[in-house]
Design a protein around this nucleic acid. Structure first.
Length: 553
DNA sequence: ACACCAACTTAGCAAGGGCCCC
DNA sequence: GGGGCCCTTGCTAAGTTGGTGT
């Protein structure tokens, strides 16, 4: 057993010495509907018990969503709803299609409309109440610091909406009570009192974990946590560590690549599969791909869980040799589609792995994430599959910035280059988004602004020509200013167009060593606010403090 | 070796809210 | 100063990883 290096400020696994907080904020209690808001069953008005009514409102609020038309959603919902009904209701309400929620739905729409129409004063009052809540419950003391809590509010009850084709969609997410809650804090802290008339499930003092509050959720039976904000010391140190691990990979990645290329020739099937999978993880930034329990979650895969049906082999395609066509649903049921030319040896191995298999069989039948990560651990301390994603993302950003930044460009053009470098990473990591609903319109708006600006510029130039000598200088300055504005708009249009289906946020927040961006900003005199918004600056405060313009990832 | 669990990171979407333009 | 647009933020689901027990 290798000795573990101490990474945090405390020895082996200790996360804090002192932790004090106020406990969670519970979801507001259910407020029954006014008498005049009716629910109809089989065309007749029916007054529901409070519990059944609450669950019905969850459905009514989603009525416009296509979720509620899906068979699985309806089936799951109806089953769970019936559990909340009185025996009388249960015997009457036997068919969801005979339930009419439209009046309830209209009521909620009117409510949300009314909320929008509220006066300034009313809105201000709500804002102040939120601020009070944040001030009271949104912070804790960990060791000597007051730290912001990420999610101090308990998730309210509602209907579960999984992503993609989720077998549990529509199930009732039950209300969390104090009796479900485990409080974690230090012994010598003021222990948060449970709400009057209630008890906590447990109060513990475990300083080997970072969470303040936990409970078990009823859909998957998994544990949910209240933890600190990314700006906190404990999250920041962990984040920094993550990038340091990726930088250590940089030092040995060539060796590791040579190793897995050798392993493609191994006489052991297990070793070959491991080597091909690692090649995909490295080259394509695929996720590890844990096995999942069938029927519990949407059918999605990562590298190790790829099935034969997810790839097609083309000995030749569009003039390229040995092309692998990937088509599968990854995390969040986001489609991964890519045609990739690979080395001949990889191609031959894939053919071998697919021999005598059905489409639904595992491609890497001798491999799983645990085997892979154990192997990686032997190659480098702290190395796991996801480190490759971090490493390849960050190194790509650094390379692209070097390549794309033009020293003579002005600031908006340099930022376009930055976004393009960021985009290269987002594409590598397959961070997609649905094109915004208003995308076309917003492009047209921008285009008309550009056209208007062009005309303005033409006017200014005409004036310049005809101006008398004494006015020339001033006129010339005016033209210059308009030119600059026009260029800014054009850059903005290009950036937006290129970003149509790409989401930059995820990579910026989770994969790109912030010191690369900070150094780039310093080097080119770009204000950091142009790259990171307030939240991001808070999260990356450690890097903004630390990185100089010559920082190398 | 495998199943299961706990803890933590990563993810996209929608509502909210602030800002810009008319 | 009102309306619409777009960015930010909140929300919470869905991953990865490592440990434990059998």
């Amino acid at each position: 057993m290798r000795k573990k290096k101490r990474k945090g400020r405390y020895p082996e696994g200790i996360k804090w010495k002192f932790l004090e907080h106020k406990g969670p904020v519970f979801a507001p209690p259910y407020e029954p509907l006014p008498e005049n808001v009716k629910f109809y069953y089989d065309g007749k008005v029916m007054k529901l018990s409070t519990k059944a009514e609450e669950v019905a409102t969850f459905f009514a609020k989603m009525l416009d969503h296509e979720y509620t038309t899906k068979e699985i959603f309806r089936k799951n919902f109806f089953k769970d709803w019936r559990k909340e009904m009185t025996s009388e209701e249960k015997s009457t309400i036997t068919n969801l299609s005979k339930c009419d929620f439209t009046h309830m739905s209209q009521y909620f729409k009117a409510q949300s409309e009314a909320r929008k129409q509220m006066s300034k004063e009313e809105k201000q009052k709500i804002k102040e109440e939120n601020e009070r809540l944040l001030k009271e419950y949104g912070y804790c003391v960990m060791d000597n610091h007051k730290e912001r809590i990420a999610n101090f509010k308990i998730e309210p009850p509602g209907l579960f909406r999984g992503r993609g084709n989720h077998p549990k969609m529509g199930m009732l997410k039950r209300r969390i009570m104090p009796e479900d809650i485990i409080i974690n804090c230090s012994k010598d802290s003021k222990i948060p009192p449970p709400p009057p008339g209630h008890k906590w499930k447990e109060v513990r003092h475990d300083n080997k974990v970072t969470w303040l509050v936990s409970w078990t959720e009823n859909i998957q039976g998994s544990i949910k946590y209240i933890m600190l904000n990314p700006s906190s010391r404990i999250k920041g140190e962990k984040d920094w560590q993550k990038y340091e691990t990726a930088r250590r990979l940089k030092k040995c990645v060539d060796k590791i690549r040579n190793q897995y290329r050798e392993d493609w020739k191994s006489k052991e099937m297990k070793v070959r599969q491991r080597a091909v999978a690692l090649y995909f993880i490295d080259k394509l930034a695929l996720r590890a791909g844990n096995e999942k329990e069938e029927g519990e979650t949407a059918d999605t895969v990562g590298c190790c869980s790829l099935r034969v049906e997810h790839i097609k082999l083309h000995p030749e395609l569009d003039g390229q040799e040995y092309v692998v066509e990937f088509d599968f649903l990854g995390k969040d049921s986001i489609r991964y589609y890519n045609k990739v030319p690979v080395e001949k040896r990889v191609f031959k191995n894939l053919q071998l792995f697919m021999e005598n298999k059905q489409p639904e069989d595992d491609l890497f039948d001798r491999l799983n994430t645990s085997i892979l990560n154990k192997h990686l651990q032997d190659l480098m301390e702290g190395l796991t599959a996801k480190v490759f994603r971090t490493y390849n993302a960050s190194i790509t950003l650094q390379q692209q910035l070097k390549e794309l930044t033009n020293p003579d460009d002005n600031i908006p053009a340099k930022i376009l280059s930055y976004n393009r470098a960021n985009r290269a990473v987002a594409i590598l990591c397959n961070h997609q988004r649905a094109p915004p609903k208003t995308f076309e319109k917003s492009m047209m708006n921008l285009q008309s602004k550009i056209d208007a600006k062009k005309e303005q510029l033409a006017d200014a130039r005409r004036e310049l020509k005809s101006a008398k000598a004494d006015a020339k200088v001033r006129r010339d300055e005016k033209s210059k200013k308009i030119e600059e504005q026009l260029m800014k708009l054009e850059v903005q249009a290009t950036d937006r167009e290129e970003n149509k289906q790409i989401a930059l946020g995820t990579s910026k927040l989770n994969y790109l060593d912030p010191r690369i961006s900070v150094a780039w900003c310093k080097k080119w005199g770009i204000p950091i606010e142009k790259i990171y918004n307030k939240t991001q600056r808070e999260k990356f405060a450690w890097a903004i403090d630390m990185a100089e313009e010559d920082y190398e990832f």
